[in-house]
Design a protein around this nucleic acid. Sequence first.
DNA 1: CTGAAAGCGCTTACAG
DNA 2: CTGAAAGCGCTTACAG
Lengths: 361, 361
Amino acid sequence: MQKNKNIRLTDIARLANVSVGTVDRVIHNRGRVSEENIRRVKEIMEQVGYRPNLIARSLAVKKPCHLVALIPDFRPGDYWSAMEYGIRRAEEEWESYGVKVSVLTFDQYSKVSFEQAVSRLQEMTETVDGVIVGTLFKEAVIQLSEHLDAREIPYVYVDSDIEEQGRLAYYGTDSVAGGEIGARMLLASMAFQGDILVAHIQHDKGSMSTQGQKRYSGFLQYLKQQGYEVNLVEVDLWIGDEAHNEQVLDEAFRNHPGIRGAVTFNSSCYILGDYLEKRQKHEIRLVGYDLIDPNVRLLNEGYVQALIAQRPELQGYNGVKALSRLLLFDEKPQVVNLLPIDILLKENYQFYNRVSNLLQI
Amino acid sequence: MQKNKNIRLTDIARLANVSVGTVDRVIHNRGRVSEENIRRVKEIMEQVGYRPNLIARSLAVKKPCHLVALIPDFRPGDYWSAMEYGIRRAEEEWESYGVKVSVLTFDQYSKVSFEQAVSRLQEMTETVDGVIVGTLFKEAVIQLSEHLDAREIPYVYVDSDIEEQGRLAYYGTDSVAGGEIGARMLLASMAFQGDILVAHIQHDKGSMSTQGQKRYSGFLQYLKQQGYEVNLVEVDLWIGDEAHNEQVLDEAFRNHPGIRGAVTFNSSCYILGDYLEKRQKHEIRLVGYDLIDPNVRLLNEGYVQALIAQRPELQGYNGVKALSRLLLFDEKPQVVNLLPIDILLKENYQFYNRVSNLLQI
DNA sequence: CTGAAAGCGCTTACAG
DNA sequence: CTGAAAGCGCTTACAG
């Protein structure tokens, strides 16, 4: 009812006997104001508890805000598709503020492909005001970061953190803890009996993703901490090369009959799960990562005991939000943001999805 | 760069050869426009894919938006405190839009207290534009709902749903499923051996909360489905009356030496857990609900095996957001919104908190 | 039924 | 260093 319940910029201008322009300059430290006036305006803002109306601000500013997301290509229902979903949700919400997001994708198993995406980013004709980057290839991401630092373009990491870089923020899990929790669930379901098959699933042999490496170290750490003496049988599987995978797995299980558990450190645990199903190896306990369709099917049918899940949609959503708020309102987010590591079992997975994790209206 | 990249209301007014006033009337169905003009304006909006600028809209509207949240009183670290946290976070975000939230609390164990809070709500001098209500007392909530329906004040349910009411939306878990998952975790940790103590913790004897009742039915349903023949030992505990509780529990364990598991269907499983700790009953497996400080301590020390958690902060946050978007932008949310039911173990609880679940910047 | 004008609370040139 | 004025895209009386 009261008209001027909350004080406006105009009000404090009047109180300070200056123009709104001057107040604006003080608020944004644009300089060109006398010491005297700076002091007085600041004092009054303090006194009356002035809080700028961000709505009005953003309407007046109207600077375009073009973000680019550099993430692996995706198909419906997979991990990176959920990330994109979150990005698009945030884009919608910030559309009125002039936020626009371009998604540039690469092959998550190919460093070269990532570097090509970086080139595309650098060659964009539109100006780029902020970048969201999936940190699969550590070295290459660091190079990109340095490039962005030099141009003063803010960027956000998602998926896995790389410390000591100038990222505006990181949204994702503590990957090492993710590995520990995977180990915890696997050991519990194996009742601490038997050996473990560790499958590395990839294209470029030998180059595990940043996240995969950290999870593996967390996994080993937990085994050690529990004092669990175990034989780790490591195998390399290749996405899409079923014949190769079957051969490798057959051999592993033949040579190591003590294997009772299996794990893989990226989303593709369904490759192992499908194999177990095909060979009807019901005695092998399997734990994997991420809530993607083929994994969920295996969880539901009992070939996977537990899935350790992140919230990719929240990562993407918050990445866009953080950059938008920085660019539009000059608001800085907390830098390291560790999201929960969800434990999904047959009984509770159905309540987890991109919508429930990101309840936007 | 392009000035008129996105079309404004002004643009479509020009294209339709009418004034902005007319376009506005068409958009909001305010009437007083000729059929001919309605048709033409709509057609053009369609053609050019007009999307209103919500920022500008809300700046122009400036109608105050006063929400009231009716929730149990809370202390730092407990369940309803997280709910309030989410409410306040949303309030902050929507502050510039003129959204204000008053929180009215009541004693969660007293129906009378809830009814008193409802009276306070009805006697408020400020106009109330929307209500968020914690649905602990089903009958009383239904009465309140009818009152609000009659006054056309929109309302949102949190905590537990009551169907067939005119709620704008519900944010919370599927309480029945919550009970099933509790049963699943308890049976697994008991290795399907022994009897179960069911503790009803309350003040008003005999009046379990809506949520508690639903969880209990889900719990029983799971036992049945698993064909688990079990002795359920039911006891009534009273918050704050330690002497009474100890006596009741001592008696129950004495008379039923086969008890190997225990459960309670609200946040207060720490009452049971503290008892188990005091009596050093390490052989009893305990499963409870909600991530509140005393429960977490017991989880960490091994007296509680698992906590089934909801995301109260998200419920409160989304309640405010839904009402705000309805009142300001006339946007309706999905009605039933089932949030995930999180399984918290000693290994992953530390990544769950009001901040990580509600990553706002 | 319709339009012209003022205003929401900020920012942005521009003139001094 | 400072202020007056126009403008962001919409809504809201008001006059016809």
